[in-house]
Design a protein around this nucleic acid. Structure first.
Length: 530
DNA sequence: ACATTCGTTGACACA
DNA sequence: ATGTGTCAACGAATG
């Protein structure tokens, strides 16, 4: 039987290593590649103009690549569950293919679409290709528990063997029995949206340092993979947060949208490593992809992963509700130049180094402002080109010492941390030109400069650039105590939880240690001899 | 049961 | 320059 197929692009905006797309082309006479502009996203999350632009560019690139295969991309407007029945009928669809997406909204959306497809007699094929491994499989292999440490994940993956090899991109040969009706009829209703249609003002976009799309992704990968020595020596903690151009690859936005396949990236690295001395996980480039896998698995398996409440691995903290602090942080007006420079780079360019994320995340949460990590998560969701649901939630919990990382007495200094790798403050001067005339001695703490020097620099602190909104030295010490209290509370409630469990079971009450979060998660009573 | 070690990336003083 | 100890002391894994 010859099929009429829809391939539904969501993430995975690429032709290379796209097994669901290949499945659509098999025994297919009519192929309809679509992307759905789902109003759920702009309604439920802020998206900056920079990130919209990245998406639009990625869609354009995809359309161009599909045209070379004598096909095209149809961009459909509406809720997936509402538009699919019409498409199924209009195109006499017999098969729908898409890539597995593990995020909660996506799972729910896809389950609904699968039901609809069944009701219309449409076969559905889903393929895992956004992650290195099938996250469900990883959890199953770990006895149904989400691996909560990196080493644990590594142990599970060791049992599964290396990730699958990427599949080849389709060619004209793959497409020879297959056509896309209406590919030359550019009906505006299926056109790629402009930023204006998306309610965005292109004039507000920053410089386009990281254009979206698979073509750009592959050439960027190629560029960095040619630096073989650099690749082999790569150690993430040794890369610098405040260089004038990125010290890492900035492939993250491309991996997030699936312009670049994580498996293609993985196997390219394997090829480069072969026979050479090279760094290893967690700090190597392979290690970075495993961190992504780590958080994807956690996001797929832990309920309410992007919230504190109802999240079984998240320490419950009495964060302050402080909109003024959030606003000052977001807008780069904290009075700490290192923090404000990073937030400015984030807003204008859409990417900041991982360690820069650490610095500003610690500052917003447990370090200084004592604001919930969920507020920071929202801002990163809006402004980062690589904003990725699982990674964003996981890293915010990490940095706020709410989960995964617990050494809350280790606090980043908004003054000292940046100095280690940029003594002169060149990074600060690039993003906060108002401070450019301060000497290195005062660039991280301009409020300490004598008045005469401020006048000479043409920047009076408190007038032209804000005074620090908090005093880090005193506040960070108080916050450590608050974290300590939150952890003590947590041990207490964990003990209570065990009390409940063992009472229910009627077993012996022996519990000072309490269950691990894994046990709380799976609700398995603690196995013990009575 | 209990102690010990480890955990991708702290700051600071001191050698 | 790099390495070590201190600060005060977390949870998870390991023995």
């Amino acid at each position: 039987m010859k099929h009429s197929c829809i391939h539904w692009f969501r993430k995975g905006l690429r032709l290379h290593d796209n097994p669901a797309l290949l499945a659509a082309m098999k025994d297919c006479s009519e192929l309809y590649p679509i992307f759905i502009l789902d109003p759920w996203f702009p309604k439920n999350m802020q998206v900056s103009v920079n990130r919209w632009r990245f998406l639009v560019e990625s869609l354009k690139d995809l359309d161009e690549s599909l045209k070379k295969l004598k096909s095209r991309l149809f961009v459909v407007r509406g809720h997936p569950a509402e538009v699919f029945p019409g498409l199924f009928k209009a195109w006499k669809v017999t098969r729908l293919t898409f890539e597995v997406d593990t995020e909660p909204y996506s799972k729910q959306r896809d389950a609904e679409v699968v039901r609809l497809a069944a009701a219309h007699g449409v076969q559905v094929i889903q393929k895992v290709s956004h992650t290195l491994y099938d996250t469900d499989r990883v959890i199953a292999e770990n006895n149904g528990k989400v691996p909560l440490t990196y080493r644990q994940l590594q142990a599970v993956l060791a049992g599964l063997g290396p990730p699958k090899q990427p599949v080849l991109a389709p060619t004209l040969e793959t497409m020879k029995d297959c056509c896309t009706p209406g590919r030359d009829n550019r009906d505006p209703k299926y056109e790629i949206p402009t930023l204006e249609e998306l309610g965005q003002d292109p004039k507000e976009a920053g410089p386009c340092l990281y254009p979206g799309g698979e073509s750009e992704a592959l050439s960027r990968l190629d560029f960095h993979m040619k630096r073989m020595t650099w690749v082999c020596n790569f150690k993430k903690p040794d890369t610098e947060p405040n260089t004038l151009s990125p010290s890492t690859t900035v492939l993250s936005p491309y991996v997030k949208f699936g312009c670049l396949s994580v498996r293609t990236f993985w196997w390219k690295l394997t090829e480069i490593y072969r026979g050479k001395k090279h760094s290893s996980p967690p700090v190597s480039l392979h290690g970075q992809l495993l961190w992504r896998e780590f958080f994807y698995t956690a996001g797929a398996g832990i309920p309410n992963f992007n919230r504190m409440e109802g999240n079984p691995i998240c320490v419950q903290v009495d964060w302050d509700d402080n909109p003024e602090y959030v606003k000052a942080w977001k807008e780069g007006r904290t009075g700490y130049p290192f923090i404000d420079a990073i937030m400015t780079q984030l807003r204008t360019e859409g990417w900041i180094h991982h360690l820069a994320r650490h610095a500003v995340a610690c500052f917003l949460t447990r370090g200084d402002l004592w604001v919930s990590w969920e507020e920071g998560q929202k801002v990163f969701e809006e402004l980062l080109l690589d904003a990725d649901w699982s990674l964003n939630a996981g890293n915010w919990q990490w940095l706020s010492a709410s989960a995964f990382f617990h050494q809350f007495f280790r606090v980043y200094s908004p003054v000292a941390f940046g100095k280690k790798t940029d003594k002169s403050g060149a990074y600060i001067k690039k993003y906060l030109p108002i401070l450019r005339k301060f000497p290195a001695e005062y660039i991280y703490e301009p409020w300490k400069a004598p008045r005469s020097m401020q006048e000479q620099a043409g920047c009076i602190i408190g007038r032209d650039y804000p005074r620090p909104i908090v005093e880090h030295e005193a506040l960070s010490k108080r916050n450590i105590m608050r974290m300590k209290a939150a952890y003590a509370q947590r041990s207490h409630s964990k003990a209570a939880q065990v009390e409940k469990e063992s009472t229910k079971k009627g077993g012996k009450r022996k519990l000072p240690a309490g269950p691990s979060v894994v046990e709380l998660l799976t609700k398995k009573p603690k196995a013990k001899s009575s």
